[in-house]
Design a protein around this nucleic acid. Sequence first.
DNA 1: GCCGTCCTCCCCCGAAAAGGGGATTTTGCA
DNA 2: TGCAAAATCCCCTTTTCGGGGGAGGACGGC
Lengths: 205, 205
Amino acid sequence: MIRVFLVDDHPMVVEGVKALLGGLDTLEIAGAAGSGREAVERLAQQPADVALVDINLPDMSGIDLCKDLKSRFPKMRILALSTFKERSYITRMIEAGASGYLLKNASAEELEEAVLTAAGGRLYLSMEAAETLTQTSAAPALPLLTQREKEVLSLIAEGLTNGEIADKLFISPLTVDSHRKNLLAKFGVRNTAAMIKYALEYRLL
Amino acid sequence: MIRVFLVDDHPMVVEGVKALLGGLDTLEIAGAAGSGREAVERLAQQPADVALVDINLPDMSGIDLCKDLKSRFPKMRILALSTFKERSYITRMIEAGASGYLLKNASAEELEEAVLTAAGGRLYLSMEAAETLTQTSAAPALPLLTQREKEVLSLIAEGLTNGEIADKLFISPLTVDSHRKNLLAKFGVRNTAAMIKYALEYRLL
DNA sequence: GCCGTCCTCCCCCGAAAAGGGGATTTTGCA
DNA sequence: TGCAAAATCCCCTTTTCGGGGGAGGACGGC
């Protein structure tokens, strides 16, 4: 019997999940909380195997709660529950230690499967979440860099100056400066800071 | 009958997978290739439902091949095959469009389950891969920033200069410069480029 | 009250980057 | 072989950063 704990500030959602999972004999609802703090308190009293955690909570984000719960109860598995299938939500939640990501329109079967999968130590992603992750991120106008430009870019990101990069690549600092200018132009930004941010966001580094 | 295609430059691995999956009646080995280019050529002739792709190929990385295959054959599912369970490999492969990540020590059962899961459009992660992703990344010495410093940092990342930030926050450019210097000191870096990289890696932005 | 942190502002000075040009040699590919 | 792109190098100027300080007011905790 897998003990499931719910964290969501919407009573309707809490009751809905209870109803969906109520009749099953593989798991039981061990409790629920409407906020992050309440969840921590209740779980300290009465542990659970799997926690269903809403992304949006009144006192803290589901991501922070996830990290917190994972540090307090390392063995407990956490399933993220959300209405959104934004890529950053999913990856952040997973990186925060969640064992899965579910949308709130999940069916009883999907809910059960997710809980069982998470309890087994495996990662469960809903179809929609998996699709979002799998979609090849259509990079909007990501600049085409030459080999040399990539080298220079990564050295800039390391914090080296033009002179140091020149020494490393055995070229003139003036050449490095040219590459740097070309990079700024290709990225369409005004300075190094914005370029590094852009480059990292589009995984060019 | 799910058609499986193999991409790996080690004949032993290819034969091993064939042997492991050979006796099953849910799937069949539709072909194999030892390089990225060869894989593209063969798949163009004879399509497959699921491709098992090694991370390390002689002519290109599995990640690049994955992107390439996904753009050429959008309906085909790709499973990453690797000896490593490094976090960056896993996330990059998934973001490149892979439907799963397997270690090469996978059993016949796991292989089959992975192929079936991928063919069904779902994401399959091996236990080890899931664990790696799930591990809360112990942020090594991430600097504690004040509220004001965070504001300044994010504006720096946008590409604004001290003067522009000063206008935006209604403070003196000299103050912005102080924050900037404190930020550099807290991050332990020498310039903005390295700071932005650091900040993005540790999700402070 | 005292201490520490945060936020604010200021000084000097040199180094680096940004913005604008131009020019030459490799090199890859058709 | 010939062209385009890449890579290399150079000039100029102005702006922005980075490094080293110092200092005062606000605010909270002890």
